[in-house]
């Protein structure tokens, strides 16, 4: 049985309030990447952090920021350990995090489907004889600017691996969509 001391809870809150280096509107807590904080003695602490994507380059900046924040709160030794399991999912982003993404102009990820292959959705691409391949019922990705549900996929990969590039067909603005993982 793992118990959390009041100090650990406080340190978790402090580490969780560190902003994400690439999406500074979100904290690490809201992004859902902070797994646990364990005290190792009176002023040594171990933090468990999970990457959004395996190759996410932000993980090193996150570790440094967490170290600095916890040192400022009296911790002498801060070790940030990267854990892969259980794998991070966009479902780990908090509701507040989703609202902040939306206000920042990024369409938040939709709630997750059961595990399985990603359906082939051709988006704006049409082939001569497309197979009728209906994706499972998923709400549409809404434009974060005007709210329209009439949007199209431009690229499965956008400025970072975790986002897809879409365009709103109502207001014509391109926007990023934090894609489901």
């Amino acid at each position: 049985m793992v118990t959390t001391t009041p100090l650990e809870a406080e340190l978790l809150r402090i580490a969780g309030s560190v902003p994400d280096p690439e999406l500074p509107v979100l904290t690490l807590h809201e992004l859902g990447v902070l797994r646990a904080v364990h005290l190792r003695g009176t002023d040594a602490v171990e933090v468990e952090l999970t990457p959004t994507y395996t190759g996410c380059p932000a993980i090193e900046a996150m570790s440094l920021d967490i170290e600095r924040a916890l040192r400022e709160h009296g911790m002498r030794e801060v070790t940030v350990r990267t854990v892969l399991s259980p794998a991070w999912s966009t479902d780990d982003i908090t509701d507040e995090g989703r609202h902040k993404l939306q206000r920042f102009g990024i369409a938040p990820p939709r709630a997750h489907r059961p595990a399985g292959p990603v359906p082939v959705a051709l988006g704006p691409v049409r082939t001569r004889s497309p197979e009728p391949e209906e994706p499972p019922a998923q709400p549409p990705v809404r434009c974060p600017h005007c709210g329209s549900a009439d949007t199209e996929l431009l690229s499965r990969f956008s400025s970072t691996a975790c986002k897809a590039l879409r365009r709103c067909l109502a207001c014509r603005e391109p926007f990023d969509h934090f894609k489901e993982l």
Partner: peptide
């Protein structure tokens, strides 16, 4: 290999989807 595989397989699903879309587009283009 289970922890890495469980994480990476979700990313690979997007890689496969990307390759499939282009194969359809170029083959049937």
């Amino acid at each position: 290999f289970a922890p890495l595989a469980a994480k990476a397989v979700k990313e690979v699903a997007y890689h496969r989807d990307h390759a499939e879309q282009w194969t359809l587009r170029l083959g049937d283009g």
